[in-house]
């Protein structure tokens, strides 16, 4: 008993880790940690704080973070949020962003699913090439890909030229600077985000699952609805979220392809910030956008973890 207390217990309670090893671990963990705290977490807290402060004329155009004259008291106002709630413009912008993001996501799924399915079922060499062709646009500039659609959709662009030549229309259609253009731009830019997780879940799907269903009497259509689709659902959800979330806050696409009345919230935020210079309202817009996206973001993280662990 006595010796047990002396030796066993004490040793267990203090596992001996050499100091140099501890230092190395601390370095590995806390250097990136500190960076992210400073430049990612703190900025969000500041956004949150400023959204409750008064606008002032000057640089920076908001009341200081910590006012030394009123030492312990931090001035808090809900005016910015009240302003957002009262002005229809903001509500409509959030709704319109959500609508555009949702419809674009749906189209991405519709186009992306058969593509991902086809890639997953191709022969290995073909598959690598097909996959590379999906990823390739990623590496070229996002901005230039959106710009490419300006050329496609403009009054004398390829689509109008083709339609005029075929005699389907007499006057060129006005497609650029419209909601249609924004939809096209978003679907085009985010399609790879849909295809890749779909491909990952379809590729992992054990072919004998499909064969088993077929063997038990399921027609090819039923094999798809009973086995393929349900088993690729994590990929579907991850893909949809990966398109929806960035599309919701999109700025470049509506700015380049959308009309002047294209009220997407990302663009609204940018305008509030640069044109109106009302920073507290801009931060309130950002805070609400973040709150709206919180649920999809958390869902995405759950599904990405599930994807990594496998079905």
């Amino acid at each position: 008993m006595g010796s047990g207390l002396l030796y066993g217990v004490k040793r267990v309670s203090t596992p001996k880790v050499p100091t140099s090893e501890r230092l190395w671990q601390l370095f590995v963990i806390y250097l990136p940690y500190l960076w992210l705290l400073l430049f990612f977490l703190v900025p969000f807290l500041i956004i949150f704080k400023i959204s409750f402060s008064d606008p002032v004329i000057g640089q920076p155009p908001f009341t200081p973070l910590f006012d030394s004259s009123e030492s312990s008291f931090i001035h808090v106002t809900l005016d910015n949020y009240r302003f957002l709630f009262e002005d229809n413009l903001y509500w409509l912008s959030y709704l319109k962003s959500a609508k555009i993001a949702a419809i674009s996501t749906f189209w991405c799924l519709l186009i992306g699913y058969p593509m991902a399915y086809g890639i997953a079922r191709a022969k290995p060499v073909q598959r690598n090439i097909l996959l590379m062709l999906v990823i390739l646009p990623f590496w070229t500039s996002f901005l230039l890909r959106v710009y490419a659609w300006m050329g496609m959709l403009s009054t004398h662009g390829l689509i109008n030229t083709a339609l005029l030549a075929s005699g389907l229309i007499e006057q060129p259609l006005k497609m650029l600077y419209s909601d249609t253009a924004v939809y096209l731009g978003i679907i085009y830019s985010y399609l790879p985000f849909m295809i890749l997780p779909l491909y990952a879940s379809l590729e992992r799907l054990d072919n004998s699952m499909r064969e088993a269903a077929s063997d038990l009497g399921a027609s090819p259509y039923r094999v798809f609805t009973d086995v393929t689709l349900p088993l690729s659902l994590p990929g579907v959800i991850a893909g949809c979220l990966l398109v929806f979330i960035p599309a919701m806050g999109e700025y470049v696409i509506p700015a380049l392809l959308g009309g002047l009345d294209s009220l997407m919230i990302g663009r609204q935020l940018f305008n509030e910030f640069y044109s109106n210079r009302d920073w507290p309202v801009a931060t309130a817009v950002a805070t609400i956008l973040l709150i709206i996206l919180l649920v999809p973001i958390m869902l995405l993280q759950r599904y990405q973890i599930a994807q990594e662990d496998g079905p």
Partner: peptide
Amino acid sequence: LPPYQRPVNMMFQSYAVFPH
């Protein structure tokens, strides 16, 4: 005949039990 019309059933090596 396609597999779903044959009076023949198969037990797969991986079992292929539907996980969902």
